[in-house]
């Protein structure tokens, strides 16, 4: 979609034109559903969260400055909505990091290489299998590039706990990759 075409659609969305809203939905869905899937536990959850985020987009579209990066703006809304959703799901789960979290570091290269060798859909599937908070911290830190301090502020989780959750997520991913390799070898 060309930029001028997107800008026209956005202008029409401000006037709440339903056809333009549909076009914007389809365009945004295509580009950002991956983000929703990384944070959600399933495809259905991802779609639900994406729709919630799109409601916020439509409601606040007047505040968006047309001509700037729409996908970046919508992506921020989607991430925040996903975090809200995860916080809700884990409301009663108090997660405390163990005192010794030294295993967080290490095996970085091995895991990245292993993930790079996998198909995107497979990686997405494995990420979705992670626990809610592990998945959230992994996506925020590894894929979206936030710092631990920023993640702590965004999610309300203690910074050390964030580091521990990240290490746990990597460990689980490694285990999954190991199981996957074993299955491959057995075939």
């Amino acid at each position: 979609m060309e930029i001028h075409e997107l800008n026209d659609i956005l202008a029409d969305c401000v006037r709440q034109d339903r056809r333009s809203q549909e076009k914007l939905y389809n365009y945004t869905y295509q580009k950002l559903i991956g983000t929703a899937m990384r944070y959600a536990g399933s495809r259905e959850d991802a779609k639900w969260v994406f729709n919630l985020a799109m409601m916020k987009v439509y409601k606040n579209i007047e505040k968006f400055k047309i001509g700037t990066n729409f996908l970046g703006w919508a992506n921020d809304i989607l991430i925040k909505t996903s975090i809200d959703n995860i916080r809700k799901n884990t409301r009663h789960q108090r997660i405390m990091a163990p005192v010794d979290s030294s295993f967080v570091e290490g095996n970085k290269v091995t895991l990245n290489e292993a993930l790079n060798s996998l198909a995107t859909e497979k990686i997405m599937e494995m990420v979705q299998r992670l626990g809610e908070k592990e998945r959230m911290v992994f996506s925020l830190y590894v894929i979206d590039g936030f710092k631990h301090k920023e993640i702590a502020e965004m999610t309300g989780i203690n910074m050390n706990t964030c580091k521990w959750l990240l290490g746990k997520a990597k460990k689980e991913l490694k285990e999954m990759i190991g199981v996957l390799n074993e299955i491959r070898l057995s075939k």
């Binding site: 290489e113 993930l115 790079n116 060798s117 990686i123 590894v142 894929i143």
Partner: peptide, 26 residues
Amino acid sequence: MNRGDFRERLKNYTEEPLDSDWSKMA
């Protein structure tokens, strides 16, 4: 087999919406 940086691939993941997705949104 290296398929490229998995981060970039996850970020650029795309998928076409179904008709039912928009109807729920509507």
